[in-house]
Design a protein around this nucleic acid. Structure first.
Lengths: 192, 192
DNA sequence: CTATCTATGTCAGTTACTGACATCACTCTA
DNA sequence: TAGAGTGATGTCAGTAACTGACATAGATAG
């Protein structure tokens, strides 16, 4: 009824998630999402750059958390230690309450290549931000890239385990184990 | 003139590359590409699933090379050794003659987020294939994923160095060095 | 020479996305 | 309290990516 009903963005977000889950991503039209939210197509595109972005809003916060976590590492930290600090900081975004929502979202994304592409891009952006943070500490380009990319990989593997069916362990614990596996991979001796 | 002129796919590929480079990806229309190749829009979409795919055809070959390389590793090879073998096998696809072409292609991709997304997806597919190959050797899921992902990262970092301005070193040499950096990252002691 | 097969063309339609402009509700100020 | 902003939304028209259905031209087989 009223124009001006607050929370337009949230309504669009909710309607999109519900429809993507129920009818599928491709089968859902932006017009449908907008209508379900009591808005027009044009308004949808004012809030979200495209049909995919509605599932990825808020990723800047995760990126900021990564960067802050990297900055929190001591000055004499090795590259991998900085990365560990960055990834570890992100764990606060994944409390147990969020697990179910994350599972639903992941189900939708896993079923749609276009959404996977967007997710990969977000991860790539994350890696780039972390690379920049590492470079600012004087770490050379290729090492910074490798370290940052490895960090994002640990993040992704950990996330996958966190939302795995039946999983109940907290994100921080999982991340610790995955970092250990990474170390073992190249035959590291530093147990930490 | 003649319908039936051979090499339709190649003409479309060439026309697309030329136009993307000259006018930009977004500014180029599929109709323009098709016309430049002496074909129709509909035919373009018969050869390529979408406007981006024209730049990524042939990536299955790279994937196959990775898988074959992994298979070529000795039975008692460690995960990282298998990965090294897989990545190393891909070097044959990047002889010096191909460097200029790769540079041009990379320039186009780097300037267009949609193309970056597609590239990331291809790399992701590559990683998945490598993960499967590792799992087939009895390597557990998370280790396989970490190793494969690390391998793809090494591949990407190496490729970036290979096409860097002024770079003339062969791909195989670069990959060797980048693998060494990866090892140093986590404080490995096994020098190769 | 006809039948068939395959690559291409034609056409109509859907939908994501954009720019330009109108309008509505709310706010501030004289 | 009327009237001038101001910001969020609506309306409308348009472009271009992509798809399905069907027509057609050229090659090939029998």
């Amino acid at each position: 009824m009223t124009r001006w009903e607050p929370g337009a963005r949230e309504r669009l977000n909710g309607a999109a998630l519900e429809l993507y889950a129920r009818k599928g991503f491709e089968e859902t039209t932006v017009a449908e999402i907008s209508q379900a939210a009591g808005l027009t197509e044009r308004t949808f595109f004012r809030y979200f750059a495209d049909k995919r972005e509605v599932l990825f809003a808020g990723s800047e916060l995760l990126e900021q958390q990564f960067v802050d976590g990297a900055a929190a590492a001591p000055n004499d930290a090795t590259p991998i230690e900085v990365v560990r600090s960055a990834v570890g900081a992100s764990a606060v975004f994944f409390p147990d309450e969020r697990r179910e929502y994350s599972r639903l979202r992941a189900t939708i994304i896993d079923a749609n290549p276009p959404l996977q592409e967007r997710e990969l891009r977000k991860m790539s952006t994350l890696a780039a931000a972390l690379t920049t943070a590492l470079r600012a500490r004087g770490i050379p380009e290729s090492v910074a890239t490798l370290a940052a990319q490895s960090g994002v990989t640990v993040f992704r593997v950990s996330f996958a385990q966190w939302i795995a069916p039946g999983s109940t362990r907290p994100m921080a614990h999982i991340q610790r184990d995955v970092f250990a596996e990474l170390g073992a991979l190249t035959g590291a001796t530093t147990a930490h």
